[in-house]
Amino acid sequence: MYRLIWILLLYLEANLAQATCSREITVPFSQQGVDQWLSGEERRGLSVDYLMEVSRRTGCRFEFRNVPRARAWLMFEKGQADLLLGAVHSPERDKFGVFFSQNVLEGVSLVSLKSTPLHLNSSGDILASGLTLTYVRSHDYGPQTAGLIKALDAQGRVILAKDPTAMLRMVKAGRANGAIVLGSAISVEAHRLRLDDKLSGLIIEDLGWTTSGLYLSKDLNPEDHQLLARTFAEMSKEDFYIHLAQDPLRTQPAWVQTSIRLDTQQAMCLVKSNDTTEAFSLSLRARPSR
């Protein structure tokens, strides 16, 4: 009996040791605020730290490729990329991959200069304003936002930017009155352009709240897909990404912090101003409709 148990334990240990990916997992890397950013040649961000933990748990190795965000999605749709980081869940993207939530909800914001702030918090107000806005070409925040961008385009009042840096430069130079964007996606770029305290943001209420996470390609072989899917699901239950995000979020400008909700049971202290920490629980707010 003991011999049988011993054999079974050895068998399980051997199988666990073999539980790793069959090849390197291809991951497009595009600068997206605190989630993904470059410091010189070094890739940094919450998703980089997240994949380091995935690698530790599974033995899988990840091959990063620096590409613009539009190119990243094209690679994913064509089966040239296995994993897409910092993604917003949308029905269109579900055709190509399986989404794993990292329990971060974020409202789509209208970001403008503090010196000329925009007080428009609905699609109707924006369409009636006559203002010119900018939007990153490859970003997808769901069908409501896509509908708004399409309507603005029909009016000739939207400038599509290639990336968040180009978007912010348009706003700074006055070429656009404001930007429609997720605040967290432009926070690092805003800091580099010294715009942290020069921007204001207002959530566009009727666009709903986005759910952020990652997409795993449906073209990945079944064994690798199952291993990574199981690991992502476990880490989601652990609120692993949220724990990574807690400290970086404390340092974000108010226009970023107010647009984010963490879908967790834990209370978190995120706002810090003038050496005074204002504690509030993002998790205990009423969960927004999506």
Rank of each mutant, 00 (worst) to 15 (best):
A154K: 12
F76W: 01
D224L: 04
L133F: 11
P222R: 12
Q246M: 14
I25T: 00
T210E: 06
I25G: 00
V111Y: 05
L160K: 15
K150F: 10
V54S: 01
V108S: 03
A72Q: 10
L85W: 08
G33H: 06
V54M: 11
T134Q: 02
W73A: 00
S273G: 06
M52I: 08
L244F: 06
L220H: 08
A151C: 07
A245S: 12
S187A: 11
S289N: 14
L131I: 11
A128M: 07
S101V: 08
R169C: 06
I25N: 01
P288W: 01
G178L: 12
F100Q: 02
E238F: 08
G142C: 10
A176L: 00
T134F: 05
S184R: 14
E223W: 11
K114H: 07
K114S: 11
T211A: 06
K162N: 12
D196I: 12
D239I: 03
G213Y: 10
P68K: 07
K150G: 03
I5R: 15
I186Y: 00
R261F: 09
Q36L: 14
T132A: 03
V108L: 13
P117E: 05
S283G: 15
A17G: 15
C21P: 14
Q266R: 10
L105D: 00
G33E: 10
L120D: 00
A87R: 09
G156Q: 08
Q18P: 07
F62I: 11
G107Q: 10
S281C: 15
A279M: 13
Q144R: 15
R230G: 06
Y141S: 08
F280G: 12
G183F: 08
F240Q: 08
R43E: 09
I149R: 03
E53I: 08
L202P: 04
Q36A: 01
D153L: 13
F64W: 15
S55C: 00
G147E: 09
Q31M: 06
S101N: 00
G183K: 07
C269F: 06
A185V: 12
V98D: 07
G33V: 06
S129L: 04
I5V: 13
A154L: 12
S101R: 13
I126L: 05
G213N: 09
S123A: 09
M170P: 10
L270W: 10
S283Q: 13
D94A: 11
S39T: 11
L195D: 00
W37S: 03
L168H: 10
Q32M: 13
